[in-house]
Amino acid sequence: MERLNLSLPLPYLSVNRDGRIVSYSALADEWFDLSTGHIKSLVDEESVNKLGRISSGQGQAPVKMELNMITKEKPLALFDVHLQWNPENRASMIFLPKDSSNEDLIEKLMNIQNRLASTDFELLEKKDELEHVLRRMDELSGPFIPLSDSLCMIPLFGDITADKINTISESCLQSVFRGNYEVVLFDLTAVGEVQTDGIDQFIQLVKTLNFMTGNVIKLIGIKPNLAKELNHHHLDQWVQFNHSLKEELSIYLQQ
């Protein structure tokens, strides 16, 4: 097995038709026991049968399924698994834990319950509404826009924070995977302040998209403050830069 020298925000495995693990990401090694070198050791019996049916199928279309996985922390944990076969009969697998959002909700509910004893209920309602509005604003600050069968754009608005990038990453990764897009444009013209943890999360997102599509990610409208931050990370192999969205789109309109 080969350990990939890539910093990906979700666990990644590459397996062959027999289920042997060919390569893996650092996060996959952190979450799963890969000592057997086989995907069967990571899933329950029902999930093994499901994987068997998919591995015997033909075609290279992306597949999404639910699998019960055996992790280092839990005997069984439910994951959304995005899988796609390549011409070399190797499947790229990205694992998204389904219960992570539930755990966040449980934690928030516990916090609210503890405060009910000493805080006015109406104030808590307003606080909950405000948190919902702030999360919704983050979601709207990075909409996914398909421009063609192979081209999509994600314009970012406002400050780049870790919370904002985390909020948009899941829907962005799923949309690119489902659509099988080849070119991903990030329009950064409307970006404001840049936080260090936010730019770290953004770079992880860009690297994951690069790995999924096999193509460099194109960044448009870089301002001096953002360019200064990005220059510290040596992204030449992952991204291309263009100052003008009009120039970039004209390339594809002429094709």
Results as ranks from 00 to 15, higher is better:
Lys98His: 03
Gln113Trp: 09
Gln255Glu: 04
Ser250Met: 08
Leu67Met: 02
Gly214Asn: 10
Ser25Val: 03
Lys223Asn: 11
Lys246Glu: 08
Ala91Val: 09
Ile217Val: 14
Leu124Gly: 09
Lys50Trp: 03
Asp236Cys: 00
Leu42Tyr: 13
Val191Ala: 07
Ala227Ser: 15
Asn215Gln: 08
Leu151Cys: 07
Pro224Arg: 15
Tyr181Leu: 01
Gln195Trp: 09
Asn215Ile: 00
Ser55Arg: 08
Leu109Gly: 01
Glu30Gln: 15
Asp104Gly: 13
Asp200Lys: 10
Gln201Ile: 01
Pro143His: 04
Leu249Tyr: 00
Leu10Trp: 10
Thr213Ile: 07
Ala77Glu: 15
Gly37Pro: 13
Met110Arg: 14
Asp80Met: 07
Val176Asp: 02
Val191Met: 10
Asp138Tyr: 15
Ser244Asp: 03
Asn111Thr: 11
Arg17Ile: 14
Val22Asn: 10
Leu140Ile: 12
Val133Tyr: 15
Val43Met: 05
His234Gln: 12
Leu51Val: 05
Leu76Ala: 11
His232Leu: 08
Trp238Ser: 06
Ser169Phe: 01
His243Lys: 14
Leu245Gly: 00
Glu182Tyr: 02
Arg90Glu: 14
Tyr252Met: 00
Gln204Asp: 05
Glu139His: 06
Ser244Thr: 02
Ser7Met: 11
Ile220His: 01
Ile217Glu: 07
Glu248Arg: 02
Leu226Asn: 02
Leu10Phe: 12
Glu45Ile: 12
Phe79Met: 06
Asp128Ser: 15
Asn89His: 09
Asp187Cys: 06
Ser100Asp: 14
Leu151Phe: 06
Leu51Ala: 04
Val216Phe: 04
Ser169Leu: 06
Ser55Leu: 13
Ile165Gly: 05
Glu103Met: 11
His243Thr: 12
Glu2Asp: 09
Thr189Ile: 02
Ala91Lys: 01
